[in-house]
Simulated assay, not measured.
Amino acid sequence: MSYPTPWQGPPLQGPGVPSMLASHADRERAVDVLRAGYGEGRLDHPEFEKRVARAYSARTVGELSLLVADLPQGPMPQPMTPHGPVPPAFLPRPQPRTNGKAVGSLVCGVLCVVTGGLTGLPAVILGHMAQSEMRRTGESGDGMALTGLVLGWLSVAGWVMFLGLVGLLAAVAPLG
């Protein structure tokens, strides 16, 4: 069963309804409130059209106030809360923090090229420490730690081969 709303009936007269004549500006303000209500989904299209027609034909301010009585007076500000108007399923997932040691391992691994391999051992140590921490805390940065480890181990292997070659040459070559 549908109940009529006050704005659907004939113009109200009497002591409770303001009888001041409505101006064009009053009608436009009421239509603006109706547009905002329609835009927010508070009114369906046929009801919006009926209320707008009624607003333009209203004679008094009281009639206009009845047309917008069940609507907020303009667009309502939406609170900016983390789980306010947007359901949590549609919010972006919070990104885990990047492990600092993983970043350090990557930097040391890349600097192996510039430093001639001197930062290779710190890259390996930081990479292993970062992987251990990330398993424990759930932080991100696994790719950085792995890259630092690979570059660090390549540098360490290069130094081991170089020092082994120097040692082998020193052992084979007679000292003058």
Results as ranks from 00 to 15, higher is better:
100 G>S: 02
75 P>F: 13
94 P>A: 10
115 T>W: 03
107 V>W: 08
113 V>C: 01
139 E>D: 08
115 T>C: 00
13 Q>D: 10
30 A>I: 00
14 G>H: 06
167 G>S: 13
116 G>Y: 00
99 N>M: 04
164 G>P: 02
78 Q>E: 06
78 Q>D: 10
112 C>Q: 03
135 R>S: 14
34 L>F: 10
152 G>L: 04
88 P>C: 03
139 E>A: 02
35 R>G: 03
9 G>P: 06
174 P>V: 11
97 R>A: 15
176 G>K: 11
59 R>K: 14
160 V>K: 06
131 Q>I: 09
39 G>K: 11
35 R>C: 03
56 Y>E: 13
14 G>R: 06
35 R>T: 00
159 W>C: 05
31 V>G: 03
144 M>Y: 07
137 T>M: 08
132 S>P: 00
112 C>F: 03
169 L>K: 14
18 P>G: 07
159 W>T: 12
132 S>K: 15
22 A>I: 08
36 A>H: 09
23 S>K: 10
125 I>D: 09
60 T>D: 04
66 L>K: 07
72 P>N: 02
41 G>P: 11
109 G>M: 06
81 T>C: 06
117 G>T: 09
168 L>P: 01
49 E>A: 14
68 V>Q: 08
55 A>Y: 07
108 C>H: 07
83 H>A: 13
106 L>I: 00
73 Q>F: 11
8 Q>E: 15
31 V>S: 08
31 V>N: 01
140 S>P: 01
152 G>Q: 02
95 Q>P: 05
109 G>F: 06
166 V>H: 02
51 R>L: 00
162 F>R: 12
80 M>K: 03
39 G>P: 00
93 R>G: 09
149 L>D: 11
105 S>D: 10
